[in-house]
């Protein structure tokens, strides 16, 4: 545990060492938030309702989804692929600490630093542009979805990096995943605005569990008839992705070889 705390601290210090990089990264994220926020403000300029959402609830959804996405998707696992490619992953494998726990500690540090900035950005939007923000609802349901979302994201990110065991083209699948996540997880709009068949199909995939359902819980739009099914499915995805990640890790390790280290 002490080792993991140290890993956490080192990751935070890495960010402190490359402050400008991080600030520029957050600026980019803030610009993306602004586009989405203003787009929805414009759509709701002359109306108070959109589908089953009021103006306040949909703007709150966009803001909360952005905040949750910052935490859930924040990850340092992308570097693993490069460590596999240049062989430096050996250094990590030799350390007396679990690989998965090591990266989870790094991810948590990444998530918390990003979250602290994202909260400030959200407050700027609320304060300067008078964005309506409904008070958080159903915290208990949110917590379950949120923790499972973090785990799902962690395992998927690990698997995307493990592709490096088999091919040097590790960046392209991650790019595709990022594109899919931003649309299928409800970054641009709440997914239940989609036609029913598409919405129910998406509920069977891991995407809505990343930040759509946690954000829905916070604005109080959880469907009571579906919530148990959704919670069960989120646990299913955590378990299935965990098993798949471990299996990929073991297979990759078995055939991994590198010269010169």
């Amino acid at each position: 545990m002490i080792a993991l705390v140290q890993v956490f601290k080192i990751t935070v210090k890495e960010y402190a060492a490359y402050r400008l990089n991080f600030v520029l990264w957050r600026l980019r994220m803030f610009l993306n938030l602004l586009v989405n926020f203003f787009l929805w403000t414009a759509i709701l300029d002359t109306r108070t309702q959109f589908g089953q959402y009021t103006k306040d609830s949909i703007i709150s959804y966009i803001l909360y989804a952005n905040l949750i996405a910052t935490f859930v998707l924040g990850s340092r696992t992308a570097e693993i692929g490069y460590h596999i490619q240049d062989g430096s992953i050996i250094n990590l494998l030799l350390k007396p600490v679990s690989f998965f726990k090591y990266y989870f500690a790094r991810d948590i540090a990444d998530k918390l630093i990003n979250l602290s900035f994202a909260v400030c950005e959200l407050l700027v939007v609320v304060w300067i542009f008078k964005a309506p923000l409904v008070a958080p609802h159903t915290i208990s349901v949110f917590t379950v979805f949120f923790i499972n979302g973090v785990l799902i994201s962690f395992f998927v990110n690990l698997m995307l990096s493990f592709i490096g065991f088999w091919t040097p083209e590790i960046w392209a699948p991650r790019f595709l995943f990022t594109v899919l996540v931003f649309f299928l997880s409800g970054s641009y709009f709440p997914l239940n605005l989609l036609p029913d068949f598409l919405y129910y199909f998406l509920l069977a995939t891991p995407f809505p569990y990343l930040f759509y359902l946690p954000a829905q819980a916070l604005i109080g739009h959880i469907d009571p008839g579906l919530v148990f099914f959704q919670i069960a499915f989120s646990f299913f995805w955590v378990f299935a992705l965990y098993k798949l990640t471990v299996s990929l890790w073991k297979t990759g390790n078995k055939q991994f070889s590198f010269w010169g280290r």
Partner: peptide, 15 residues
Amino acid sequence: GRMGVIFFLLGKIIR
């Protein structure tokens, strides 16, 4: 990088 080409194109079209 054939796989990269396919994934990038796919990603951009999907976006």
